[in-house]
């Protein structure tokens, strides 16, 4: 069995296509690389959807937190505190069992207990809270002169937000937001290790890496493969976010531009 056969058999295994059973013996490097890579599809899916959807909620929450009206500010502060102050692992468990209870009451909402929807909702809310804190910090550090200049031009409300506040907020927040994005992709590995079960052994990259480590009693092959995949994914994220960063900073002289600085990626 050549490596090409393995790719056609297991390349899309994480989505349920190809070979039905996972390999039980003869764990070649090729099989491990292909199957763990197949699992990466899930990680990319979880991260991308949560990040895209979370962005809008994060901007809204950040603006709400900066509001002078306590009726708007307080809920935003609580939302951020709840999701940033508790472990994502526990959030997954709680959400899963809450969805299971909900399914008992309203059978139409049964889809929520599946990872593709339920886990995405949790990740979406989680990243929205973390990003909202980043955006709020940026909103607070917008130079006073920018706002005054907008006032001098007679800009108010939505127009001022869209033309002045929002672009500056994005520019200031972008380096931290890049870290948050990397961090989120790493957090997607928690999905199948917390409440959400995998159906028919369709799991993410860590699920398969763990499968191989359990079967071969040798963690020194599957985990480094997983690590390589994640380093590649991290580099891609940095590349894409770097392009956006260059566009956000294009009007500034070279030395004033915000640089993308990689900081620690920690567990949430």
């Amino acid at each position: 069995m050549t490596c090409w056969d393995v790719i056609s058999d297991y390349g899309l295994r994480s989505l349920g296509f190809g070979e039905r059973l996972l390999p039980r013996d003869d764990f070649t490097i090729c099989k491990q690389v292909v199957l763990i890579g197949s699992g990466m599809i899930w990680n990319v899916y979880f991260g991308t959807v949560a990040l895209l959807a979370g962005f809008f909620l994060a901007v809204g929450t950040a603006v709400a937190k900066a509001s002078a009206n306590p009726l708007i500010r307080k809920p935003a502060e609580w939302f951020i505190f709840v999701f940033r102050g508790s472990p994502l692992f526990i959030q997954f468990f709680f959400a899963y069992f809450a969805f299971v209870s909900l399914k008992g009451a309203v059978p139409a909402l049964g889809g929520l207990t599946a990872a593709w929807l339920g886990a995405v909702i949790v990740l979406f809310l989680n990243t929205a809270a973390y990003s909202a804190e980043i955006f709020y910090g940026a909103l607070m550090s917008i130079p006073k002169g920018d706002i005054e200049a907008a006032d001098a031009y007679g800009m108010t409300g939505w127009k001022r937000f869209r033309r002045i506040t929002f672009p500056t907020m994005m520019r200031l927040a972008w380096p931290s937001y890049t870290n948050e994005a990397i961090f989120l992709f790493h957090a997607t590995t928690l999905v199948f290790f917390s409440g959400f079960p995998s159906r028919g052994q369709m799991g993410d990259a860590l699920y398969y890496a763990n499968y191989f480590a359990d079967k071969t009693f040798n963690p020194f092959v599957p985990y480094p493969i997983l690590a390589c995949y994640f380093i590649i994914l991290t580099l891609i994220v940095i590349g894409i976010f770097g392009l956006v960063n260059a566009r956000l900073n294009r009007h500034l002289p070279q030395q004033n531009r915000g640089k993308l600085r990689l900081r620690l990626n920690l567990i949430r």
Binding site: H186, A187, T189, L190, F193, L206, A209, N210, A213, F217, P219, F220, Y223, L226, A227, F230, I231, T234, L262, L264, N265, L266, I267
Partner: peptide, 16 residues
Amino acid sequence: VRGVPDIAFFLFFVIA
């Protein structure tokens, strides 16, 4: 330890 999900390290180190 950077660049790689930490949970992978937790699973890896315990066996290793």
